[in-house]
Amino acid sequence: TRKKMVIPGVGEHPLQYNYTFWYSRRNPGRPASTQSYEQNIKQIGSFASVEQFWRFYSHMIRPGDLTGHSDFHLFKEGIKPMWEDDANKMGGKWIIRLRKGLASRCWENLILAMLGEQFMVGEEICGAVVSVRFQEDIISIWNKTASDQATTARIRDTLRRVLNLPPNTIMEYKTHTDSIKYKESPPSLLFH
């Protein structure tokens, strides 16, 4: 078991897990290698209670107000928001692409569901990401075991419920091993 670095204060409501906020931003036009990804990602801080969460969140910029190529990551304390982390390497993520204007509300609903243990998949959830891009925004939720179809189906159904998305919203599940393969050798079709 991981050592808990922060504890709930007196009178506060403890969370099932401690979490850490991270922020990353990529300089335009510079492809990110694994190393530079790790260097670009900054820890904002960790919390153990509902009240500590709000103290961070209330002072953070809303994703919809971010510019450029930026991401907020909220992961269980001790799990790095990277494919290579032991908790993530056999895992995958549900990805939802959002038209501009929806990211702030969807991100808040997603992380409140995660902190409140709404997904009901035991230890499976690793964390969540909101990625701000030029044309669209992307939210994703990462879990430990990509091959566990009962878990991934339950996460999908919970996402549909808590995000209250339009019925035509496309949800895509991607394993991290596919993401790594794709990054290392993109399908040749792309270049025909």
Binding site: V50, W54, S58, L112, L115, G116, E117, V162
Partner: peptide, 21 residues
């Protein structure tokens, strides 16, 4: 073991607590 479950409304209500500021 038991899990600590909170719904969205409860979490949003906690935002107004003096402890959350």
């Amino acid at each position: 073991g038991t899990r600590i479950i909170y719904d969205r409304k409860f979490l949003l209500d906690c935002r107004n607590s003096p402890l959350a500021r």
